[in-house]
Design a protein around this nucleic acid. Structure first.
Lengths: 190, 190, 190, 190
DNA sequence: GATGAATGAGTGTTCATTCAT
DNA sequence: CATGAATGAACACTCATTCAT
């Protein structure tokens, strides 16, 4: 018998991201994705139970790659501010390289599909960051506010600014990235 | 000729928001919306050119109501910080009252439909706020960074935090709202 | 607005019977039926909730026509044997005229769909016959055995013999019909 | 070369009968049957040319087992009535033991597949019974009517009554079986 | 012999939209 | 203005069958 073709699975993954980016969640049909991947629609159902499973799986995969990228060179022996800054730079690098991944996750997260994914499933990948944030609170480096508020000022502005849609008018460069980081830092620091 | 029934148009508006909230953009079909509005599918085509027109119109309408709500009691003779704080409170009040509106805009903005709406069309409603932000920059009250960066630390965190999805674990109350405002303020202030 | 086209509904009914007769339950798809009825597949879903509803509705309709035909000239003031003989003749007449109806019911009854139809729903149409059978038992005209056994010797042999498939070798005529009735009569009479 | 695995073939046979009984002819797909038989779909195509061949072969196999069961202890030196009674008892025993076989044949016989099977192919197994029926006609023990009419009063009522579906209200026991036999006998006897 | 991967053609069903009233 | 009937095109998904191993 034939063995499962790793190349095919990858083609389906890429086709899914591409289609969702180009024509959106609403219009991305299984057959269009299949066509983009140069594969029969039926083949998709070998690798994924159904369309929902496909979309969710792609989302989780992206989130994993994302967390991996954002935590690159993560080193909790460094000063807290440096760790955060490194995280910040990683974010912009990832967003500029994989803007399409980001767009996919945004569309997914703002659809009812998102309820199918355990939030904890996603967040566990960011656990190291959460931990040093908590430590920084204890060491009175940053403000003692709920984690959700902290991330609202670190994570989301970064994503918003890095997202290419916003950046039509503003050129993103080292200076803007540093400027933005300063705002984030001022927001949270004690 | 009879005039278009204001009541029916409103029913269609509400049905559209409700359906998108309940079953998402992907599954919201014209006939389902019509059913929810107690109206024939054909009737929708009297008020809107097609489905796209319906979705876009609803989006713009919501954005208008939103800007109106956020700028309530806007008074540019007040100190800048008070204006911003008032804006902040309005945001949380709106989000708690009209979470469904917010969810609709999020789904819409993260879909390719959003490209059909002139960004300026939306932003013009927030023009008063933009103006006082620029004045505050000139007066060296806040940091001199691009407007997009400023809003990324004022507008988006507010929306994120106010959005009920986030608030499963954290109870939103006057204290958290004030805490969050402090972070936003520290982020932008000089 | 257009009103429901009685002609269309009839065309769908006939197309369903015809297709099931020609290519069987297994192969009769909604689109084939629609094509046969000169109608869009979508149109069928205006008149019937789904395929199952279509098949069941057609079955019930046929059964109603069938019972009506079999009980034609039913007159319970006549002698019991005459009533039964009349019923018998009606059966053969119906089968010869509407062999396709019979074939449909057989395919339906021997499929899992049959469980979707209340047996009582069908049997109630034959209630007059059941009543005179019971009276005949009380008057000691026929054997006192369960109703199911009686009908197994009246109804089913008639249907089997009348069914055209059987009759490839045997020519059905007045004589065979009378012969068969004699067997049925001898079977049940006391 | 390995020889075809008798065990596998049997598993496919049983799986086919089981699936058709559980979900009907219409929904019984090759892959579902394969899964039920713990076998790859491709394996089925080693033993059978195609799906049609599978269904037909299973039908013929069942019919063979059936005729064998019904003619158990067949002894044409016995009196005709005893032979028939023995046949009758065998029928009920088989039906109670192998109701699923019976259901399969009914679904098959009432589908267009049945036309693929030579009727003579099936009937040849019942040839001994046919022969003594003819002898009984010559000996003026039973009525001189076409064979199809005779069997319509012997074979079909037995099957109908024995079929478990009918027997929801009536308990089948030795008494009912004997009652029913009496009707059959009265029907055909001279 | 046996298998799971692979697929084009088909399934039942819903879609956005138009039409006749 | 308002409607439900009507539809071709598309939907998600499964089918019988073949292929490479």
């Amino acid at each position: 018998m034939r063995i499962k073709d790793e190349f095919k699975q990858d083609a389906i993954f890429n086709a899914t991201v591409k289609m969702v980016n180009e024509i959106g969640f609403v219009s991305s049909s299984v057959s269009k994705i299949a066509q983009q991947a140069n594969v029969s629609p039926a083949t998709i159902y070998i690798y994924y139970k159904n369309k929902e499973d496909l979309l969710v799986s792609v989302y989780i995969e992206i989130k994993q790659r994302m967390s991996k990228a954002l935590l690159k060179n993560f080193d909790d022996t460094q000063p807290f501010r440096d760790i955060l800054y490194n995280f910040w730079l990683n974010g912009f690098e990832f967003a500029s390289k994989y803007g399409n991944y980001y767009q996919y996750t945004e569309q997914f997260a703002n659809s009812p599909f998102s309820e199918l994914v355990q939030n904890s499933e996603i967040e566990k990948h960011f656990e190291p960051l959460i931990r040093i944030l908590q430590k920084a609170i204890e060491q009175k480096i940053i403000k003692n506010v709920p984690m959700e508020i902290l991330t609202a000022f670190i994570f989301y502005p970064m994503m918003i600014i890095a997202n290419h849609k916003i950046c039509k008018t503003v050129k993103i460069n080292k200076q803007t990235i540093d400027q933005a980081f300063l705002l984030a830092w001022d927001a949270i620091k004690l």
